[in-house]
């Protein structure tokens, strides 16, 4: 459509002639910002794609990992490794890739504001930076919690159904299983928020995604370069390894306990948010 189709040579009249001292809505700034951020999130296509990928990786890869295990040599006989088999963790393995999709969504929620220039319009509408970041965090957190939880539960049930063909599956009522599945869903949610914090700190999409992938995927590899026992001691503090402790059922001496895992992972999130908040408040938009 060309401008000529829509242009009026005279602006249409506003309803009033004198500027009135109209009432400003009484609701809280955060409440209004939440509604606004929900509209923002649902009105761009990248959100839908990132969430579809998150779900597809969690469920699809989890199922594939379980199916592949049925054909593994190591489970034949009574080898130590087959005794250590963790059917819950196996069915949740898709989280390795899904975390990248949901993490990128988190990055985009903030970095797209900066790369498009929308941030200047957004902050002129919501000048309180804390309210702005809080609204984005809550909306993104809720959406990724719902999508993450649904995905991990579907992945768990489908994965166990596959493993049950050889009688290897477990159930939610077994010790630690429900905790592990919930842990995986929570992990995906928190990775999204980690991405949001990184997007706020870095402000550019490629840089923030590189930081996210680096910390989540590369950090555990770097830790392996340390001499023993520091490779394990440091490695298990990396976000992904701490997260793995959250969604494993069987005890792994190289990982933290589930409770330690969630606290270490939360520490990462809190630290990234502190830096993000300081930068958002101090830097010019």
């Amino acid at each position: 459509m060309s401008i000529a189709d829509t242009a009026h040579t005279t602006p249409a009249r506003t309803e009033r002639l004198a500027v009135t001292n109209h009432a400003v809505p009484t609701q809280s700034a955060l409440r209004a910002a939440l509604v606004s951020e929900w509209t923002k999130l649902r009105s761009v296509r990248s959100t839908v794609w990132a969430l579809i990928l998150t779900s597809a990786f969690t469920i699809g890869l989890g199922t594939l990992f379980c199916w592949a295990y049925l054909n593994r040599r190591e489970r034949r006989g009574d080898s130590i490794r087959s005794l250590l088999f963790d059917p819950t963790a196996r069915s949740l393995n898709g989280v390795v890739l899904a975390q990248l999709a949901v993490g990128v969504l988190g990055v985009l929620v903030m970095s797209s504001e900066y790369t498009t220039g929308m941030i200047r319009t957004s902050l002129a509408a919501v000048p309180n930076r804390t309210v702005f970041l809080a609204a984005k965090t809550i909306v993104l957190g809720m959406v990724s919690l719902v999508v993450g939880m649904v995905s991990v539960f579907v992945a768990f049930f489908v994965g166990q159904a596959v493993l049950d063909r050889d009688g290897l599956g477990t159930s939610l009522s077994a010790t630690g299983v429900l905790r592990a599945v919930l842990g995986a869903g929570l992990y995906l949610t928190l990775i999204a928020l980690f991405g949001l914090a990184l997007g706020t700190i870095v402000r550019r999409t490629p840089g923030a995604i590189a930081a996210l992938f680096g910390i989540v995927l590369i950090l555990p590899l770097i830790a392996q370069a340390f001499p023993e026992p520091w490779d394990v001691r440091i490695g298990r503090l990396a976000p992904f390894n701490a997260g793995q402790a959250m969604f494993s059922v069987r005890y792994d001496p190289d990982l933290l306990t589930p409770t330690q895992g969630i606290f270490v992972f939360l520490a990462w999130i809190v630290a990234s948010y502190l830096v993000a908040m300081v930068m958002l408040s101090r830097r010019d938009a």
Binding site: V24, P25, Q27, A32, A33, V35, S36, E37, T39, K40, S43, T121, S122, A125, V126
Partner: peptide, 13 residues
């Protein structure tokens, strides 16, 4: 429309 809507909502409009 959505661009204006998210701005409006952020200010209770």
């Amino acid at each position: 429309f959505d661009h204006l809507l998210c701005l409006a909502q952020s200010n209770g409009i």
